[in-house]
Computed example of a mutant assay.
Amino acid sequence: MILGFLASHGGSAARFLTAACQDGRLMATPAALASNNSGSAALAWAQEAGLRTAHLSAARFPDPGELDRAVLAFLQGAGVDTLVLSGYMKALGPQVLGAYAGRLLNIHPSLLPRHGGRGMYGDRVHAAVLASGDAESGASVHLVTAGIDEGPVLAHSRVPVLPGDTVDTLRARVQATEGELLLGALREFQ
């Protein structure tokens, strides 16, 4: 398995999975990371880690079709056969979605289908969980499709929502489960 990553900010999933490849927990090769944010910590980290990198954004490719083609060419040029979104904050185009259908994963910080969809990312998700009165939260690994957070869910982690929880405390508990959850889901692809 040749892994590629798309990230907008820190790229924690890419970092975790790359470490899992290096220490033998995942039989895969991390090959490439592209970011839509030229100043992202993920892009800087990936360059230092020796991954092939690219800044691919609407600023560089204003036409959505051209950007879609550029992302696909970058990933295919690196030999990527499995793509992981690592905090990627942009919708993917039809060419990337088609080329990686069934091998394109994302992790979302709620128990999908609850608290997913447009505008539901980061702390907004945890705030929505708390506002809803849900007794539990967690993370979901899902296949990426054209609809935001609508692809088939492959795995969930579950954490309780505790009395007195804040966005920060709930986020910390959910994030603590994400790396192993994503790792387990990717092992199913081997």
Rank of each mutant, 00 (worst) to 15 (best):
A7S: 13
S8E: 10
S8H: 06
S8P: 05
G10A: 14
G10L: 10
A13T: 15
R15E: 10
F16V: 12
F16E: 13
A19C: 10
A19Y: 03
A19R: 10
C21T: 14
D23K: 03
R25C: 13
R25I: 12
M27A: 15
A28P: 09
T29E: 13
T29A: 12
A31D: 03
N37A: 13
S38T: 12
G39H: 09
A41Y: 01
A42C: 07
A46I: 02
G50T: 02
L51A: 04
R52P: 00
T53P: 00
T53C: 11
A54Y: 03
A54P: 00
L56F: 00
A58N: 12
P62M: 02
P62T: 05
D63C: 08
D63E: 12
P64S: 11
P64H: 09
G65L: 03
E66R: 11
L67C: 01
R69F: 06
A70C: 04
V71I: 11
L72R: 01
F74S: 00
L75V: 05
Q76G: 08
G77T: 12
L83I: 14
V84S: 04
S86Y: 01
S86L: 02
A91C: 07
G93R: 01
G98M: 10
A99L: 04
A99Y: 04
G102E: 07
L104C: 12
L105Y: 14
I107G: 03
P113S: 09
P113I: 09
G116Y: 00
G117W: 09
G117Q: 09
G117P: 06
R118M: 12
R124M: 11
R124Q: 13
H126K: 02
A128D: 14
L130V: 10
L130P: 01
A131G: 13
S132D: 15
D134Y: 07
E136F: 09
E136P: 07
S137W: 02
S137V: 09
S137R: 04
A139E: 01
A139G: 13
S140H: 06
S140K: 06
L143V: 09
V144F: 04
T145R: 12
A146I: 08
E150T: 15
G151D: 08
V153G: 03
V153Y: 06
H156W: 15
H156K: 13
R158L: 14
G164D: 08
D165Q: 08
V167H: 03
D168K: 14
D168G: 15
L170M: 03
R173K: 06
V174L: 07
Q175R: 14
E178H: 05
G179R: 10
L181V: 05
L181S: 09
L182P: 02
L183Y: 07
A185R: 06
R187N: 11
E188R: 12
Q190W: 10
Q190F: 11
